[in-house]
Design a protein around this nucleic acid. Structure first.
Lengths: 236, 236
DNA sequence: ATCGGACTTCGTGAAATGTCGAACTCCCTT
DNA sequence: AAGGGAGTTCGACATTTCACGAAGTCCGAT
């Protein structure tokens, strides 16, 4: 399961628990969905089984975010030890096959980050545009598959929860197609990063297309794996 | 903004806050996204402004789920008073146009509900199948639009976060097409409800198709609006 | 410069959380 | 029927949250 998918699922679960009038019930529902017994969960959390019981029975009416987070983490960790049964089942269910081939990673920060900090982290060269933009997330998409296979509706999904994000197109040949795709899309990211291309080989049309929508463009030759690893490690 | 969309967005926000290492920062990020000042939020919550400040500065490291829920509620309520600026912006961004025309409502319970309790609530007549199933959510889809316009990938989305749910098809003519659509779909709901049709007029093929996948089928003549209202009011 | 409003910091007390361990209730198994 | 293991209930207590309000800090406007 990809980190982005896991995060999305974890957020959904956390959200449901947090917004529930009876968080304990929701907690229990998800623990049982993961087919994890109270004892095993308690063990993994390093607490006594009565603690789990107390939460699920509703003795603690409004558990803190830290507790909820730790429990969800444990659910995923235990599932992973068991071979990721739950994760596997849900990832085929919740995310279409396309997501897998198109979206390599998608993440939202809890705070705005200056684009140049972001670009520096993954060794980017500036192609055009100012560096005064700020972003609150990023999306890494497979350029070719995105353009070939996404319907207009589905294309919107790559924006995650905010358009204030960096769009990273992977394995671009000249960068022209991705910029054209953005040109015809109603939502404009403040920042585009072209992966897998020497800054000097970027198509001359790219800056002209970018300027129309006031988009800052970078290029980077870091590998896709490295980029995802680096970004995931950041404290943003 | 539809209740289902609002709920989804609220859950996403709650999830992000709950899973954040620094919930205060996430809280602030969303408050500012809604363009709401600390003072106004405090007023709406009926607390002193220092409370907001304390949360956002991180003095409360792990706020309870109740607090987080109330704050998110207020954000949406204040936004609504202002004409739903934020909701409008985000609903066009996060949900494709299709969602609007196809999915009337989508919701997950915090607990499993017996299908017959569910069916009774919206005045259903049993067409076929047993009543020992349990569901943890429901989806109301416009039958015609779902079948006409959804790509196979998008079709999966109507399942929300669990396949253990009731699928309510609206304005069916005979019920045959929805059952055929389900027949060819890899995920099988335990329960299907055909809306807008007299139980005697349901196509004779429906029970035969349903039995193949062990699906319980009901029909109801309640209006779509009433169904959504009734279900939203339930304590599930 | 100075005033005023909005926001933040911080001390404080009441209430609730977070955790434990002992005692208790249910099955399951032999 | 008896014995155990797993799970739940509950009293206890240290730690935090939650909310207030006074005092302090930042602006933006006069």
């Amino acid at each position: 399961m990809k980190p982005g998918q896991r995060q999305q699922l974890a957020e959904k679960i956390a959200g449901e628990i947090t917004l529930s009038d009876v968080p304990g019930k929701a907690l229990k529902k998800w623990r049982t969905s993961f087919s994890i017994s109270p004892g095993v969960l308690a063990d993994h959390l390093g607490v006594s089984p009565s603690v789990i019981s107390d939460y699920e029975s509703g003795r603690r009416k409004s558990p803190g975010t830290a507790v909820v987070g730790k429990i969800i983490d444990s659910l995923f960790a235990i599932d992973e030890e068991k071979g990721g049964i739950f994760a596997k089942k849900y990832s085929t269910m919740l995310f279409s096959d396309l997501d897998d081939e198109v979206i390599y990673d998608i993440h939202d920060f809890s705070d705005a980050v200056p684009v140049n900090d972001f670009a520096d982290a993954i060794n980017c060269s500036l192609i055009c545009g100012g560096s005064d933009h700020r972003i609150v997330g990023y999306t890494v998409v497979n350029s070719l598959n995105a353009i070939l296979t996404l319907s207009p509706n589905e294309f919107n999904r790559i924006y995650g929860w905010s358009t204030e994000r960096a769009l990273i197109f992977t394995e671009v040949s000249s960068g022209k197609s991705p910029m054209v795709a953005i040109r015809v899309t109603p939502f404009k990211p403040p920042c585009v990063i072209l992966q897998g291309i020497d800054p000097n080989l970027v198509h001359p049309l790219v800056p002209r297309l970018a300027e129309r929508d006031r988009i800052t463009v970078y290029s980077t030759e870091e590998s896709i794996e490295d980029i995802i690893t680096i970004l995931r490690r950041q404290a943003w």
